[in-house]
């Protein structure tokens, strides 16, 4: 097991929901407020920290993000920004949602911000029918209710079909 090979304070092991283990440098893990709190509260870093809600593929992405941000010095803000914008670029919605849930769970604010922004950008300027399709939201309004909602926010729907 990875943790037994390099069992020192500078690394810790994270375990994904599907059982894969990731050996992570401590300063990378500290990007996550959740992990930071766990370490602060004297969680031995020799232990394997289970992350039961995050699958291996998502965790790998999350850790990639954390590593980039932990390693970049503050003077490279421009580089980080372009990394951020590339990071989510071609991601499909399923992966993006996994990521936003993981960022929320692990309390990684920067990642949560960019993922939420990406989803927001997907929704805005689109007709609601299309948004429903993209996210598989089932329309449970009756035509009367739908008309009432429209009327309630009439200012927002003017000019939209």
């Amino acid at each position: 097991m990875a943790s037994s090979i390099e069992n020192n304070n500078e690394k810790l092991t994270l375990k994904s929901s599907d059982g894969e283990e990731f050996l992570v440098e401590k300063h990378v893990a500290l990007q996550s407020t959740l992990l930071q709190n766990m370490l602060d509260s004297d969680c031995s870093s020799a232990d394997v920290i289970p992350l039961p809600k995050i699958d291996a593929r998502t965790l790998a992405l999350v850790l990639g993000y954390c590593k980039k941000h932990a390693d970049a010095s503050s003077s490279k803000q421009g580089e980080l920004n372009s990394f951020d914008s590339e990071f989510l670029k071609d991601m499909d919605m399923g992966a993006l949602f996994n990521l936003v849930l993981a960022a929320n769970f692990m309390e990684i604010k920067g990642l949560l911000d960019i993922a939420a922004q990406k989803i927001a950008d997907t929704i805005k300027d689109k007709p609601h029918q299309e948004v429903r399709e993209i996210f598989h939201v089932e329309n449970d309004y009756t035509p009367e209710e739908e008309a009432a909602v429209r009327e309630e926010n009439r200012w927002a729907f003017e000019g939209f079909p």
Partner: peptide
């Protein structure tokens, strides 16, 4: 449905990141 069941704080965070008008129009989704 991959979005309606997200934790509320994430939904809020998403809605706050678009213009108010677009956010208000999500009322029609369901």
């Amino acid at each position: 449905d991959i979005i309606s069941d997200l934790p509320r704080n994430i939904v809020e965070s998403i809605l706050e990141r678009m213009p108010v008008r677009d956010a208000a129009r999500t009322s029609i989704l369901s």
